[in-house]
């Protein structure tokens, strides 16, 4: 059954419909997964994205916009190397290695070099994270469908409250690679959609496809120094339920020698919200008290004393604003 149907209906009705469908011998109706089963699927998806060699074309849809991009991911002895390039609109290229992300805009030849944070959230899922996901989402296995020419198992993650979005994932039944993903907001509105239209998994993928169209600098600039974990001395008075602090760091701002930036991360195990705090004097031109939407990500910024607080995450606007509006420095 489609997520569109199951989302709008009370769960009882959904269960009855599912039961009727199974009564006539169907195997594809949504079935709730136990926490370990749910987690096994999510882990499989995350591992596949990092451990497989693949090359393909995907579309990204948000609002009225549909964009096509090409992605290549190869793993060898030196680790992962991957490249993303946009195929329509302004040309953009992202090359990511084990520890550095290069963002290149061929039109104005600007190149950004940023260091990646060590220790990613997936696929080494912590037991806490598992508990958190199943506590805040009802994870169900749905139908098997064809996506991008491959057979995919659909999974539904339905949020248990309005503080987070729902998800539908279609994972390749053979490898677990995510073939299609939809983020679903209120009233079944699709916030954003990723879908491969063509994909090669494994086999011989020419290394040439990874070749950047820019020259990789021999050394990364000093400004991209690793972030250090810190107690940032900021309080969130009204933390949205289910979101916990998972990281608190002070990082250097790109291309600036004017001091570090505070970055606090909250997560419910699946969605993440980032809080960035830095002196107002360094953020000239950022709009005050405004909400910006970028695909499924909401961004809200406001000034607290002499600091600018920017909160963003792939959650509904009110979740982001609740955090922004209740942030204050810890009193000494």
């Amino acid at each position: 059954m489609s997520i569109a149907r199951s989302f709008g209906l009370p769960r009882v009705v959904a269960a009855v419909v599912g039961g009727v469908m199974c009564g006539v011998g169907c195997v594809a109706s949504a079935q709730s997964l136990s926490p370990p089963e749910a987690m096994a699927w999510l882990q499989r998806i995350a591992s596949a994205a990092r451990q497989l060699n693949y090359a393909g074309t995907f579309v990204y849809q948000h609002g009225e916009t549909v964009e096509t991009s090409r992605i290549v991911h190869l793993v060898d002895g030196a680790g992962e190397i991957e490249k993303l390039e946009t195929l329509d609109g302004p040309r953009r290229e992202v090359v990511r290695t084990q520890d550095i992300v290069y963002t290149y805009h061929p039109d104005d030849k600007s190149l950004r070099v940023e260091r990646r944070r060590a220790g990613r959230s997936f696929p080494q899922l912590l037991p806490d994270q598992l508990t958190s996901i199943t506590e805040h989402y009802d994870v169900r296995k749905a139908e098997v469908e064809r996506v991008g020419g491959l057979e995919a198992q659909a999974l539904i993650l339905e949020p248990r409250d309005g503080l987070r979005y729902g998800h539908k994932f279609w994972a390749d039944t053979n490898t677990g690679l995510l073939l299609k993903a939809k983020m679903i907001g209120e009233r079944n509105h699709t916030m954003e959609l990723f879908a491969f239209t063509q994909l090669q998994i494994g086999g011989s993928i020419p290394r040439d496809l990874l070749k950047p169209s820019f020259a990789i600098p021999a050394t990364a600039p000093a400004q991209v120094a690793a972030a250090e974990v810190a107690d940032t001395a900021w309080l969130i008075g009204n933390q949205p339920s289910g979101f916990h602090r998972v990281l608190e760091v002070r990082r250097m701002r790109e291309g600036s020698s004017s001091g570090p930036l505070t970055h606090i991360v909250l997560s419910d195990g699946l969605a993440a919200i980032s809080v960035f705090i830095e002196p107002v004097s360094r953020t000239k031109g950022m709009p005050d008290g405004r909400l910006i939407q970028q695909g499924a990500i909401h961004i809200f910024t406001r000034v607290v004393g002499d600091q600018r607080v920017t909160v963003l995450g792939e959650t509904p606007a009110h979740t982001v604003m609740q955090i922004a509006n209740s942030l204050s420095p810890k009193s000494k």
Binding site: H62, L84, V101, R117, R120, A272
Partner: peptide, 27 residues
Amino acid sequence: EYLRAHQEVSPTAELHGLAAYIRTVST
């Protein structure tokens, strides 16, 4: 810059791999 830093800490983005970066370079 904030969006790129966020990609690196979001479990949802991790499921998408590099594809999630399309958000940071979208039109």
